[in-house]
């Protein structure tokens, strides 16, 4: 891992000192054991803060729409910053999504790709799992190597996993509607409406989230389970055709809600119905932005 770390520092140094980037988004050591945290490096002297290890779990793409959006209170001239971002396979897919949805200025964005060996789950690592501490989401990862990268760090990635991610989904689908609703409600009842899932998600960049709209109001702000269910249905479904299953929402949730059970299913349905996987190609139109006259097969779904 330290090989990648040195290379990343070199690349960052180079980008900042030549002016190709004003800001490098990377990872630095956290204040708690077995954590890193996002790091905003703005000068060449600070590149030593950058690290690369098995705890670089945050999806840094979450910061991109905000950095490239014109500040609301600003008057007069504004030029978007030149940003470089360090991405793993999953993060790169988020960046592809941002490019397609016009949330970034591609000319001013430099993508530094690091083929990923998989990130550790701190709980597993703390329990002494040693080499088997990889997070569940990484064990099921299909795209460890970034699909888009202006600069690719030369390290070997973990091999892409098979279809492990669907095993739990299939098991769930075999249950009765009542059982499924019971599981869904039980998970969602843990929700404290902190909206960390939304804030951590790179795809959730709406200026005003649907749940915060008041004229008219979609669902209440209180802890009534019905309103909370509505929020989760809405937020997760807004990811249809966009969610890259990076697990940022799962990691951010303080209550440990099993969001993966639903995000993975959504991704699977998109693949099944539209033969589309989000974040692999900048040119492929997102399925819910495209139409097809001849998809008779969909009629059976309705």
């Amino acid at each position: 891992m330290s090989d990648a770390e040195n290379k990343l520092r070199e690349v960052a140094q180079d980008l900042l000192s030549t002016g190709r980037a004003e800001l490098v988004l990377g990872y630095e050591n956290g204040s708690l054991p077995m954590t890193t945290r996002p790091c905003f490096v703005r000068s060449a002297e600070d590149v030593q803060r950058l690290v690369w290890n098995e705890f670089c779990t945050n999806n840094l793409a979450v910061y991109l729409p905000g950095l490239f959006a014109r500040p609301a209170n600003l008057r007069g001239e504004w030029v978007p910053p030149k940003v470089a971002i360090i991405v793993k396979g999953c993060d790169a897919r988020s960046v592809v999504g941002h490019i397609k949805e016009n949330q970034v200025d591609r000319e001013r964005l430099t993508v530094i790709g690091v083929p990923c060996e998989g990130m550790a789950d701190p709980e597993k690592a703390a329990a002494g799992a040693g080499g088997n501490a990889l997070a569940d989401v990484c064990l099921a990862c299909t795209n460890p190597t970034p699909e888009v990268a202006d600069i690719m760090i030369e390290v070997k990635a973990r091999p892409a996993a098979g279809d492990d991610r669907l095993a739990k989904i299939r098991e769930f689908e075999a249950k009765s509607p009542a059982e499924r609703w019971a599981y869904f409600t039980e998970e969602v009842s843990k929700c404290i409406r902190c909206y960390a899932c939304r804030q951590a998600c790179p795809n959730c960049y709406c200026k005003v989230c649907f749940i915060d709209q008041g004229k008219p109001r979609w669902a209440g702000a209180g802890s009534d389970i019905s309103d909370t269910i509505f929020f989760h249905i809405g937020r997760i479904f807004h990811q249809a055709g966009r969610c890259v299953e990076c697990d940022a929402c799962v990691r951010a949730c303080p209550m440990g809600i099993d969001l993966r059970m639903f995000t993975v299913k959504l991704g699977e349905d998109v693949k099944d119905l539209f033969d589309y996987v989000p974040g692999l190609s900048v040119d492929e139109p997102p399925p819910l932005c495209a139409v097809d006259r001849d998809e008779e097969n969909l009629n059976t779904e309705l």
Binding site: F172, E173, P177, A178, E179, R180, W181, A182, Y183, F184, I233, I236, F237, A240, G241, F262, K265, L266, D269, V270, L273, F274, P287, L288, V291, D292, E295, L298, N299, E301, L302
Partner: peptide, 15 residues
């Protein structure tokens, strides 16, 4: 059609 096919699958999945 696309939207509702996906939404119906999702709603059915959650029960």
């Amino acid at each position: 059609r696309r939207r509702m096919a996906l939404f119906k699958r999702f709603m059915t999945y959650i029960g």
